[in-house]
Design a protein around this nucleic acid. Structure first.
Length: 844
DNA sequence: AGTGGAAGCGCG
DNA sequence: AAAGCGCGCTTCCACT
């Protein structure tokens, strides 16, 4: 099939200069490189890769020792899509025959795909961040996916990755062997077990990894499939199959007691353990064998501490560090779901499992070296990250106690309300449509597509905003804007909330539950800033779900909050005198912001309430400025006692504080105000409020500027705890990318430090508290959750507060905090109104 | 039958 | 000219 200038298989041929642009290069090329689609220049000249990204590609090929003239270069899609849009599925399909034909004609030994479109189209592999750089075998050629040079031009932080991938690829072409295949694995049995003990006895470090039937370590029905261990100092890799596997050398009792003996010897001999997300493996070892292995180094957490921006999956790190070939196998195989007589497939699984621990073992010293390149990073990893990893095994283990009766009753109620809301919704829609366009099929209200068709076509309502994908949005902001035009809008908001509660939480949690406990896990590497991530974090504040979480019989659930942590740390880092003054003198910052904004002529609806409230508080009529001053002094609680509306007003100010501190501009502010509080400031009013804000907190702008300068200079910012946030995108030629990186440079040190501060408290609490009296059971960013034995509440609350306010590690890290971190403790079912609050003395 | 991107929404 | 930050989960939908 030759090039086809008359192709009309999709719409792309319309409006392009050159239809079906073919590749360029030697017809017998050993390497075929395939990009995405022609751009403007390519379309104009009728040749692929002649613009800036083509130039970059050729440079990088040469740098990798590959002559650009020796390779055949083409695109997945042969016609230029309009407006630099990504080709859609139909276009991909229509063009597939051409690129297949091209590959069949050239018969390359190697194919390199550039970018997600090519990777998906040619290799059927999406997730370019995970698969790039791996040499993958396919029936007709070997292949490697890499980032597209155009993407690297857009975000230069990806360029080193492309460079490294091409370098490695060049070496592969020249036949450079990256690593001698020393890897071999052995299965434990009667004749090999003596060698196993010898190797374990000789090693300094051992790596361990489990394959399991599921991720649910808390479920007694799910079993361990294999344990793999690898030893250094000349040791090899071992497979210890559980009785889940056919021909396992033991039954469950013997398997478990063997693992117990291994754990005992490891302890006795002082062997050091390394694992990739070892917290997970230790959960299983603890629940199934009642032992844990020492976790002295976690390669997943090291990877995150070394470079928070990359993927931390073991196989992608193994590719990066060790040039490991692609070695993944199907999920079912890892779970042991293999026909018992399929020995090769079982051995393939064992080999896979053994490689996991082998690669983990090999990466440990390499990562150790990288950590040692930066003293603060090394300190952070050893004294905080690894300690937290060990602590979280114990924190997660008991799960969260659920009040089952309350939970099921709430589920029933929410389901009923959801069904009712749905009926009302359907009724409304049926009526309205009948009048306008005649009968229609019932809308699936969970489908944004169908909702959009109903709102904007059938009902003829105006489109308010578009989604990222260019479709008319049916999000909450749109529905709020439409609420006076059609009752369906408001009703849909109600339905969505109930549906969310029901599916995501009340039903969604069931998969995490066993008996009366719900088991959450935390990713300590879950964010780029250094916060943790967990499903628990999204639990609605509304009591429906939260109040069902409590402590077991005889214990009390306690939540310890760092009060206003983000603004406090913003005050510390920016040095803003007003914020510092507020925190030192116990003035509520949201309240201060609110009154100042009103005083400066923003939020006009609060002028009257200011005068009224002040009059009541003073017992006489005051002028406006005196009223503001009095309210500031008396505080928000006194004001709320007089007029409940101040509560809502303070909430608005909270949004202002967070938005503006992190760089929100007028436009977004208006949107935010409209959605959350139903008032719509003009551009001018918004600008006024914003100006007032930055003149009150005059230290904020200089701090923003400082962070922008720093990140531009260094390419990273560092938090007080020494954690790095690398922002290589700051050098992008795209203003929007640079701006995004600047805002992250402002936000990350705050978010990151609070995360680390909380972790400092957490490890101390987990290590120091007497678990018979109080124990940590979870965290929510700036809050720590506990169970406290009832009779020790009085004794334990001050101990908890003291550690939370002043963790020892803060001093050890030589961090000085001019503004104290205050905490509030709250006991009773999680988030329940009317719980007992306890505020300790202010921190020193 | 499983996968992955979008859209939408819950949290700090 | 234009710009809050950080997450995880469920559903739909298109695809293999």
């Amino acid at each position: 099939m030759p090039r086809n200038p008359n192709c009309q298989d999709c719409t792309l041929h319309q409006g392009v200069k050159n239809v079906c642009i073919w590749g360029q290069g030697p017809k017998n090329a050993k390497v075929l490189i395939v990009g995405e689609a022609p751009g403007y220049n390519e379309d104009k000249e009728g040749k692929p890769f002649i613009g800036k990204s083509g130039q970059l590609l050729r440079e990088e090929l040469s740098r990798a020792g590959i002559d650009p003239n020796d390779v055949y270069i083409t695109n997945t899609i042969k016609c230029r899509p309009p407006d630099n849009k990504k080709p859609n599925a139909g276009q991909m399909k229509a063009c597939k025959k051409y690129i297949d034909e091209e590959i069949a004609t050239i018969k390359p030994e190697y194919v390199v795909t550039l970018g997600a479109v090519a990777s998906k189209g040619i290799l059927k592999k999406a997730k370019i961040t995970e698969v790039h750089g791996k040499i993958i075998d396919t029936p007709n050629f070997k292949a490697m996916a890499a980032y597209h040079p155009a993407y690297c031009l857009y975000d230069p932080s990806k360029l080193p990755v492309l460079r490294k991938d091409l370098m490695r690829f060049g070496e592969t072409l020249r036949g450079v062997k990256h690593r001698k295949q020393l890897f071999k694995w052995r299965e434990i049995n009667d004749s090999s077990v003596a060698d196993f003990w010898t190797e374990l006895g000789n090693c300094d470090w051992f790596a361990f990894d489990l394959e399991t039937q599921s991720l649910d370590w808390f479920n007694p029905n799910d079993k361990v499939v294999v344990l793999s261990m690898s030893m250094d100092k000349g040791g090899g890799s071992w497979i210890l199959p559980s009785p889940v596997m056919p021909r396992a050398p033991w039954g469950w009792k013997a398997f478990i007691s063997f693992i117990k003996r291994v754990a005992e010897k490891i302890r006795k001999w002082g062997k050091k353990g390394v694992a990739h997300n070892g917290k997970f493996d230790n959960h299983w070892l603890w629940r199934k064998c009642n032992v844990i292995f020492p976790l002295d180094f976690d390669t997943m957490l090291a990877s995150h501490t070394i470079n928070e921006n990359r993927a931390h999956a073991l196989d992608s790190l193994a590719t990066e560090y060790l040039d490991a070939p692609y070695y993944d196998i199907p999920l079912g195989d890892k779970q042991g779901k293999i026909p018992p007589d399929d020995i090769p497939r079982i051995h393939r699984m064992y080999r896979y499992a053994a490689k996991d621990s082998y690669y983990t073992l090999l990466m440990r010293p390499m990562m150790q070296k990288e950590l040692e390149e930066d003293r603060s990073i090394l300190r952070l990893f050893n004294r905080l990250v690894m300690r937290a990893a060990r602590a979280f095994h114990e924190i997660e283990d008991p799960g969260m106690k659920v009040l089952m009766d309350r939970f099921s009753e709430n589920r029933r109620q929410v389901a009923k309300n959801r069904d009712q809301a749905l009926d009302v919704l359907n009724g409304m829609a049926r009526e309205a449509i009948k009048k306008r366009v005649g009968p229609r099929k019932l809308t699936n209200w969970n489908s944004p597509q169908q909702v959009a068709r109903l709102l904007f076509e059938d009902l003829g309502l105006p489109v308010i905003e578009e989604t990222d994908g260019g479709a008319p949005s049916t999000g909450e902001a749109t529905l709020v804007a439409l609420k006076d035009l059609h009752p369906v809008a408001n009703q849909l908001v109600k339905y969505r909330e109930l549906e969310k509660f029901l599916t995501t939480y009340l039903d969604g949690w069931k998969a995490l539950m066993y008996e009366d406990r719900v088991y959450f896990s935390y990713k300590l590497h879950g964010t780029v800033t250094g916060r943790y991530s967990s499903r628990l974090h999204q639990t609605p504040r509304d009591g429906t779900i939260r109040n069902c979480v409590d402590a077991p019989e005889g214990w009390t659930f306690v939540q310890g909050d760092f009060s206003q942590a983000e603004l406090r740390v913003a005050a510390i880092i920016s040095g803003d005198p007003e914020l510092i003054y507020c925190f030192k003198n116990g003035i509520d910052v949201h309240w201060r912001t609110l009154l100042y904004v009103v005083q400066s002529g923003g939020a006009g609806e609060y002028v009257k309430p200011v005068l009224k409230t002040a009059r009541k508080l003073a017992g006489k009529k005051l002028n406006f400025n005196d009223s503001i001053e009095l309210l500031t002094k008396k505080g928000h609680e006194a004001a709320i006692a007089i007029w409940d509306g101040w509560k809502e007003a303070r909430k608005k100010a909270k949004g202002i504080n967070f938005g503006f501190v992190y760089g929100m501009r007028e436009k977004k502010f208006i949107e935010y105000a409209k959605l959350k509080y139903g008032f719509e400031p003009t551009e001018e009013e918004a600008a006024k409020i914003r100006r007032a804000y930055f003149s009150l907190y005059r230290g904020l702008s200089p701090w923003h500027d400082r962070m922008k300068r720093l990140v531009k200079l260094d390419g990273y910012v560092r938090s007080l705890s020494g954690r790095l946030r690398r922002l290589p995108g700051i050098t992008s030629p795209e203003r929007s990318v640079r701006s995004e990186n600047e805002r992250q440079a402002i936000n990350s040190p705050i978010q990151g430090f609070i995360g680390d501060f909380k972790a400092m408290a957490l490890v101390e609490l987990a290590e120091e508290l007497d678990p018979n009296r109080a124990k940590v059971v979870g965290e929510v960013h700036d809050a720590i959750l506990f169970w406290v034995k009832n009779e020790y509440l009085k004794e334990q609350l001050p101990i908890i507060a003291k550690i939370m306010q002043n963790p020892k590690l803060v001093k050890e890290f030589k961090i000085k905090l001019p503004v104290p971190i205050d905490v509030e403790l709250d006991s009773g079912p999680w988030g329940q109104k009317g719980n007992v609050k306890w505020v300790p003395e202010k921190a020193a």
